[in-house]
Design a protein around this nucleic acid. Sequence first.
RNA 1: GGUCCCGUAGCUCAGUUGGAUAGAGCGUAGGAUUCCUAAUCCUAAGGCCAUGAGUUCGAAUCUCAUCGGGGUCACCA
Length: 582
Amino acid sequence: MDVFALFASRVANALQVLYPEVGAELLARIVVEPPRDAAHGDLSTNAAMVVAKPLGKNPREVATALVEHFKHDADVTSVEVAGPGFINFRLADAIWHQVLRSIAAQGADYGRSNLGGGEAVNIEYVSANPTGPMHVGHTRGAVFGDTLASLMAYSGYEVTREYYINDAGSQIDTLARSTFLRYREALGETIEIPSGFYPGDYLVPVGQALKAEFGTKLLAMPEPEATAIVKDRVLVAMLELIKSDLALLNIHHDVFFSERQLHGQGGDIDLTLEWLRSKDMVYQGHLDRPKGGDTDGDYEDREQTLFRATNFGDDVDRALIKSDGSYTYFAADIAYHRNKFIRGFKHMINVLGADHSGYVKRLQAAVKAVSLDAADMDVRICQLVRLMKNGEPFKMSKRSGDLVTLADVVEEVGADATRFMLMFRRNDASMDFDFALVKEQTRDNPVFYVQYAHARTFSIFRNAGKELPALDFSAEALKVAEIERIVTSAELDLVRVLAAWPRTVTAAAIAHEPHRIAFYVHDLAAAFHGFWAKGKDDVQLRFVNVEDPKLTLARLALVNAVRQVIVNGLTILGVSAPDELS
RNA sequence: GGUCCCGUAGCUCAGUUGGAUAGAGCGUAGGAUUCCUAAUCCUAAGGCCAUGAGUUCGAAUCUCAUCGGGGUCACCA
């Protein structure tokens, strides 16, 4: 049950009774939300102000009529006009009791919605080049994409988590050559790794595996043949490495899509170019010298095969074929996104790093073109993460040269803290990630703070078991607890926070902003800690009351509701909810 | 130069897609532990929402310009 959605529909109904001429597009602009200042009541709506002008009426006049209407609503204890025409509602306790009952009844599904209506959405994230282990720069996008995917799935979308493997470029040839050196090393040669090659130790086992499989046979083969074999083997190995790194954060993709499969004669790129040409989206032409950007002076005026990206909102048209005749990366990407569209995705989300922000318009232009404007593409840019330790920039290197790897971070602070901290910030703001802070077990550390709140719900139950051994507080007993006994303002304020969960999830899903889930869970934890502490000052507010088992049971139902909503939030975030902290 | 992101308390950040007197945490000052985990809570001080205009009943939020910080620009991937 979503209190806000419930009253939004009641307000809309009331308006249609009072002013039948009000149209649907106007009703859509009406918002029912919690007022910023709790003193204004439980709910507030701008309905009168939205509707007044088109009706040619004064907002307060409309508001007064609505107020009269809601005076007969049994769930409303007071309703009044405020300010320029807001209508503020105060709700009967019974509404909050219903919220608690619906949390108990819905459990893990409380907050789940059918916003997406089962529509398919493709979320592409990580897509790091398969040339080595994941480094910390990939981690934010990985966590963001995975959490967004969970959020969308929770909101009724059919989600596909996709990884695009950039396995077709020249960096893969370099990778293969680097691996071949490791193979020779495994055969006993002393090798030297030239600059520009991949120096990381992670290629050593790949070289050894090649030795085990082929002995010295690869040395005798013609080079192209050997390179092809090495390339195949090393790509598989790198992908396994990446998968195992992602698994450290419990991230698993549904589809690993290889760029290589798009290339080749009669492949997707060929077909896509043919299609683009048939739609007159490609032409031969010249590009201007990049203004101020031609720093290395390698610009050369030349006739090129260009995609009419400017017709779809991009700043310049984009090259599709390189001077050596091969396709550009972008050409492959157009084909890739056409492939997504053909697979049935009308909604696509790409999660990219800050260094790709210049790529956004191009990508959106491509999707618009290949879908003939039938698909939408949202690109979420994750800004940089600076690793810090006690306020100092932090360097750590174990597995791959100078880079800090994802595995290093997880080993240092754990998967839960990594995930939560990265989501405790808007994706489009850069952030400092302080190891020292994340390892601290105080309220400065939001992960810990939330997990502590969850553990506290368990400790209350453990304690209730000791103090009232005869009390049955199984799930079934809690469902029939006398919720009406929840009447104090301190308790009801906590329920108000719980009531905001469904609208928080929905708003986060619409905006593609999973960080709101992290902030909500943190707020809920704060409300719960605050209520808990009130029991210190006022014995009457403690959860466990030996004199009154029925009241205790009602309050345990409240505690259980808090526990449930924290779990629902942490589940979307992919963070564990321990019963006890050690 | 074009383009994208950011600019909110001393610091780190939220701000419910345009709502009412702009909120948290840290830090600072004070307070609460015979009592459900003080790993917590409560109170106070602290603001020209970078600047200027515009849009309207109403702007931190939308538009434009300016200033400052960062990313990016290509036949790289």
